[in-house]
Each structure stands twice: as C-alpha cells, then as structure tokens.
C-alpha cells in the first residue's frame, strides 16, 4: 500500500507539471496545445545531449532544457499561434495548427535526435528501503522532490509576481487586462514560453529515470489532456489535482490490475468517460483560479 502511494506521488508530481503547462497555455490563449508531449520529448533530448553526451552537470543540462523550450515556445507563439489567433476567431484554426505542430516537432526530433531510445547515467545511486514497505531509488525521490519544488515555485510566481498577476488577469478578462496596460501580445508570448518551459523541464527530469524516445510525445499529450479534463481546464489547482489523481490511478492500476494484463489505461479511460459525462467541467471547473 505505502509503495503504491509513493509511486503515485512520484508519478503525480511529474504529471502535474505537464498539466500545469498545458492548462496555462489554454487559459491564456484558449489554445489546446496538442504538441505539448513533443515539447516534453524535446526537453528530454536536450538534457540527454548536454548531460548524457557532453557530460555537463545535470542541473546545467536541465537549465538548458528549460531555456531551449522557453525560446521554442516563444517563437511558436510569436510566429504561429499569435498570427493565427489575430486573423481567425475560429477555435478549429488553432486546434489544426497545434495538431500540425505536433507532427512538425515529431519530424524535427527525428531529424535532430534520431529514432533511438536514449538514456542517461543515474544522477544519484542507491535505493531507499524503508522496512520493505517503500522501496524507491534515490534518483526517483530526488526527481520527485525537484518536481514539487518547481510546482511550488510556479505557483508562487503566478501568485505573487507582477508578471504572474498580469498572466492571471489576462486569463480572466482579456479586455480588462488590456485596460490595465497589459500588452496582450507580449504576455501571450511569455505565457506560452512558460508553459513550454514546464514541459521541457519535466522532460529533462524524467529522462534520468525513463530515458526518452521519439514515440513518447503523443501519449504524453493524451495523458496531459486527461489530467486537465479531470481537474478542470484552465485552473491551476485543477491541473495539479488532475496530475496527482492520474499518477495515483496509474500506480494503483499497475499494482492491482496487472494480473489481468495491461489494462490499466483501458480502465482509466472508461472511468474518465463516465466521470466526464457526470461532471463535464472537471473537478475544479471554472475559468482560471
């Protein structure tokens, strides 16, 4: 039991960060970023390149993942989503763009990083063994800790910084935020960069545990959307809650259902459909909080 809980918290901390980035972009720009999983994969490959290949310190490689994805996110907003949103008021336009972007990024990952599964050396050795109730490698604990610190930092940033306040204002009322002097173009770009950066950061963290490969993008996007649907789209608390719930469900499923075969996600999907039929706005459903 303790082991399942620990696994759930570990998975949930990673998932929550992915969902936070996705929900931030959605709340700010009303964009469903189907390419979020690909951004996560790129983050993984960047950390792999700098830490695994060039042998730079892990923290530095992680920083490179963040910077790369923040720049990529900013460019994507400035040259793709921004112009499309200005020209078209139809939501399908940005959805199609996001779907196309996912394919484009997949192709770029293939070109730049190749199709092989890549792993990196362990960041710390050893395994925590608490009386055989919880057995967890130290690197997982460290990654989980780093993820939680990042989530806390993100919340503090959104809550207390001037930029965070402006982003929240923009998400809640676009016109009113403009009347306060918030430059919509600039802050949309900052928000998108921040969302992409979160995806890249998780990619960089998780490459040390699971490695990274080209095929992880799509499934990661789908999981991210599930978390956001569970928690409620566009709400910070919802994204975190959704992330931890999905992590926990996955951990429980793997422990309980594995004897019946690989059906964990089948069960989760069915449960999600029933849940959404009853509560379509998700648990914390409201526009941004």
């Amino acid at each position: 039991m303790e082991q399942v809980m620990a696994n759930g918290v570990y998975l949930g901390s990673q998932y929550a960060m992915i969902a936070l980035g996705l929900t931030l972009i959605f709340a700010l720009m009303n964009v469903l970023n189907f390419a979020h999983g690909q951004m996560y994969v790129i983050g993984g490959f960047v950390t792999y390149t700098f830490y695994g290949q060039f042998g730079l310190p892990f923290v530095l490689a992680l920083l490179m993942s963040c910077v790369t994805l923040a720049i990529l996110g900013a460019l994507i907003e400035k040259f793709l989503f921004g112009p499309v949103i200005r020209r078209s008021s139809r939501e399908e336009s940005t959805m199609l763009l996001a779907a196309g972007l996912a394919f484009l990024l997949d192709a770029m990952i293939l070109l730049v990083f190749g199709e092989k599964q890549r792993g990196v050396p362990k960041i710390v050795d050893g395994v925590l063994n608490w009386d055989f109730r919880i057995i967890m490698p130290y690197d997982r604990i460290l990654i989980c800790f780093l993820a939680m610190v990042s989530i806390a930092a993100f919340i503090a940033f959104m809550q207390f910084s001037k930029t965070g306040r402006a982003l929240r204002a923009l998400a809640q009322d676009r016109d009113a935020a403009q009347l306060m002097g918030v430059n919509v173009n600039r802050y949309s770009m900052i928000g998108f960069a921040l969302g992409a950066m979160l995806a890249g950061l998780v990619g960089g963290l998780l490459v040390t545990i699971t490695g990274v490969n080209l095929g992880m993008g799509g499934p990661t996007s789908i999981k991210a959307f599930m978390m956001v649907m569970i928690g409620g789209a566009g709400v910070i608390s919802g994204a975190i809650l959704g992330g931890f719930i999905l992590g926990m469900l996955e951990a429980v499923g793997l422990a309980v259902l594995s004897q019946y075969g690989d059906i964990t996600y089948l069960v989760i999907f069915v449960a999600l459909m029933i849940f959404l039929a009853i509560r379509p706005q998700g648990l914390m459903g409201k526009p941004w909080g």
């Binding site: 306040r165 402006a166 204002a169 809640q172 526009p287």
Partner: peptide, 13 residues
C-alpha cells in the same frame, strides 16, 4: 473585475 483574484490583486493590477 478579475473574479478569481483577490480585491487587493485587482487593485494592484
């Protein structure tokens, strides 16, 4: 108003 922000944050905006 920004409905999910505190009165103070609204004023600070």
């Amino acid at each position: 108003v920004f409905p999910y922000m505190s009165v103070k944050d609204n004023l600070m905006m």
